[in-house]
Amino acid sequence: MKGLRWRYTRLPSQMEDALCGEDGEEEDEEDEEEKKEAAAATVPDPEAPVEPQLTEASQVLGASEIRQLSLHLPPRVTGHPWSLAFSTSRDGFSLRRLYRQMEGCSRPVLLVLRDQEGQMFGAFSSSALRLSKGFYGTGETFLFSFAPQLKVFKWTGSNSFFVKGDWDSLMMGSGSGQFGLWLDGDLYHGRSHPCATFNNEVLARQEQFYIRDLEAWVLG
C-alpha cells in the first residue's frame, strides 16, 4: 500500500509505564543517597572514646564521671576493663589491706575518693600502689577533681615525685614539703595541697578532709 504512512501512537498505558520508569529511576537515586547517609551514620567515629567496662558497680563514680575520666587515661589502658581491687565498703578502712590487695599487680591504678562533704577526687597511678622507699611512677600519673566539673592535673615535669607508699601514709605529688594528695594509714583522714609535680589545686573543698568512700580500680 504505497502512499500510506503508518503513524505509531503510544497508548496511555505505555505512557504511564514510561513515566513510572523515569520516576522509579529518580526514586532509586534517592534511595541510594538515603542508604549512603544511613551507612555513614552507623560508622563509628574513630575519635569517640571507648567506654570502659567495670567488673562491678562503683559506689563513688557514676556513668558520666567514668566517661569523662576515660578521656584522660593513657591509650594503653583504653578499652580494657576496670577491676575493683580495693573498696572501703567491702575491705574496710586500711591502707595495709589496700597494699595486700595490690600484691603481684603491676598494672595502672585509678584511685577514686568521696569525702564526707560529697566531693569526688583522686589520682591515676601508672603502676600499682605499694610500699616503697622512695617515690616511683611515670609522667602518666595525674590528679583529678570533680568540682563539680572534672579538672585534671597532669605532670608538669618539674620533679618526679609521683607516688610513695609507707605503712602509715600514701603520698601522690610533692614539692616544698606539701603533697598533692596525702592519705593516712586508716584511709580515713587526708590532706591536699598545691604541689610542683602537678601544679594542682586543692582537690577537696578544704585542705584537710575525711574520707567517706575510697576505691582502687586496676586498669588493663
Rank of each mutant, 00 (worst) to 15 (best):
G175W: 03
R114S: 12
L187E: 11
L170C: 10
V109E: 01
E117H: 08
G139Y: 09
S176T: 09
L111I: 11
V152E: 00
V109C: 14
R114Y: 04
M171A: 11
T141S: 15
S132L: 05
W182Q: 11
V112T: 15
W167I: 05
L183M: 09
W167Y: 05
G185C: 04
W182S: 08
L170I: 00
Y136K: 00
G173Y: 00
K164V: 04
F179H: 12
Q116R: 10
G165K: 02
G122L: 08
L170A: 08
N159V: 10
S174M: 02
S125Y: 02
K151C: 14
F144H: 04
G122M: 05
D166E: 14
T156N: 09
E140A: 07
F179Q: 05
S176K: 11
K154C: 08
G180P: 10
Y188R: 12
G139T: 13
T138L: 02
Q149L: 10
T141C: 15
F142S: 09
V152I: 12
G139S: 15
L150C: 08
S158A: 15
L129C: 08
S158D: 13
Y136F: 13
G118H: 03
L110F: 06
F162D: 03
G165I: 06
D184N: 14
F146Q: 04
S127A: 14
S176I: 03
L187H: 03
L131G: 08
L113A: 12
Y188N: 10
G157H: 09
A128C: 11
K151Y: 07
G165D: 10
S169D: 06
F179I: 00
R107C: 13
L129H: 03
S125L: 14
L131P: 02
R107K: 13
L181F: 07
K164R: 15
V163M: 13
S158Y: 08
Q178L: 10
P148F: 03
E140H: 04
G177E: 11
S174N: 11
S126P: 05
A128E: 10
W155Q: 02
Y188V: 10
K154I: 02
G165H: 04
G177R: 03
G190R: 03
Q149C: 08
S145W: 01
